[in-house]
C-alpha cells in the first residue's frame, strides 16, 4: 500500500498537461480519437500530422519516448492481425518483394494500424498524466452517472486488495506443494476463484455496512469539485481542434 492509490501507469509530474483538469483531458482525448477514426484511410499524411500532434503533447507532458513506446506494446495482438490482412483479403493483388499482397488488405492493415496506434497513444498519454482519482472525478464531471463512477472507484480501490488476496492464495497453494500443471489442476484453481468471489462479496458487504454506519446513503460527497477555466478548456481542446483541421484538409485534399 506504500504507493497509495496511484496506479503504476501514472507518471508523477508537473507539466502543463498534468495540470489540466481531468475532464478537459478526457473530453480532448475522446474528441481526438473520434476525429482520427473518421479520417479517410486513403489520406496518408493526416495520420503523420496526428502523430506529430501527439508527440508534441507527450513532449509537453515530459513523457519519455521510450516509455510511451513500451506502453504501446499492448497493441501487439492487433498488429499481428493487421499484418495478416494483406494475405487474407481478396481483391487486386500487388507484388512486393516477391509476395503477392492484396491492395485492399494493405489499406485495411494500414487503417487499423494507424488509427489503433494513435488511439492507444492518446489513451496512454491520458493515463500517464492523470491520477486515478482525478480520472474518476473527471468522469463524474462529464456526467457519467455517479453510481457508475462509484462502482468504478470501488473497483479501482479494491482491485489491488483483491489481487493481493489472490496472490496470497497462490502462495498458500504453493506452500502446500501445489503446482499448476495442465488441465487437472483446474479444479483447485477454480475453487480458489470461488473462494476469491466469496471473499470479495463478503468484503463488499462489510464495506457497505461500514459505510452505512458512517452515514452513507447512496451518494458520495464530492469534496473537491474540479473546475476548469476557459483558458484550460481552450488549451485542452486545441489538440482535437488541430486534429479536426487536419481531418477536414484530409477529406478535401
Amino acid at each position: 500500500m506504500g504507493a497509495g492509490h496511484s496506479h503504476r501507469l501514472y507518471r508523477h509530474g508537473h507539466s502543463p498537461v498534468h495540470d489540466l483538469p481531468p475532464h478537459c483531458k478526457l473530453a480532448a482525448v475522446f474528441l481526438f480519437v473520434v476525429v482520427v477514426v473518421s479520417t479517410p484511410r486513403e489520406a496518408m499524411w493526416p495520420f503523420a500530422l496526428y502523430a506529430v500532434l501527439l508527440a508534441g503533447v507527450a513532449g509537453a507532458a515530459r513523457i519519455p519516448a521510450g516509455y510511451l513506446l513500451k506502453r504501446l506494446l499492448i497493441e501487439i495482438p492487433f498488429v499481428a492481425f493487421a499484418l495478416l490482412m494483406p494475405f487474407v483479403v481478396p481483391g487486386e493483388q500487388v507484388h512486393v518483394l516477391g509476395l503477392s499482397l492484396s491492395e485492399n488488405g494493405l489499406w485495411g492493415a494500414w487503417n487499423v494500424l494507424a488509427k489503433g496506434t494513435l488511439g492507444v497513444a492518446a489513451s496512454v498519454i491520458l493515463a500517464s498524466t492523470t491520477e486515478l482519482r482525478a480520472l474518476l472525478l473527471g468522469l463524474q464531471r462529464l456526467r457519467l452517472p455517479s453510481i457508475l463512477v462509484q462502482i468504478a472507484s470501488f473497483m479501482i480501490r479494491y482491485g489491488d486488495v483483491i489481487t493481493d488476496e489472490m496472490r496470497r492464495m497462490s502462495i498458500a497453494r504453493r506452500s502446500r506443494g501445489f503446482e499448476a500443471r495442465g488441465v487437472r489442476s483446474w479444479g483447485v484453481l477454480a475453487k480458489s476463484a470461488g473462494a476469491l468471489f466469496i471473499r470479495s462479496y463478503e468484503r463488499g458487504e462489510r464495506v457497505h455496512l461500514a459505510m452505512v454506519s458512517r452515514g452513507y446513503a447512496g451518494a458520495m460527497p464530492v469534496i473537491d469539485e474540479v473546475t476548469a477555466t476557459r483558458a484550460q478548456w481552450t488549451r485542452a481542446v486545441s489538440l482535437p481542434a488541430a486534429a479536426l483541421a487536419v481531418c477536414v484538409l484530409g477529406w478535401t485534399l
Binding site: 453510481i147 462509484q150 462502482i151 468504478a152 472507484s153 470501488f154 473497483m155 480501490r157 479494491y158 482491485g159 486488495v161 483483491i162 468471489f197 470479495s200 462479496y201 468484503r203 463488499g204 458487504e205 464495506v207 457497505h208 459505510m211 447512496g218
Partner: peptide, 9 residues
C-alpha cells in the same frame, strides 16, 4: 456501489 464495485474488482 460497494457490492458491484467489489464484484468488478
Amino acid at each position: 456501489a460497494p457490492l458491484a464495485g467489489l464484484v468488478a474488482a
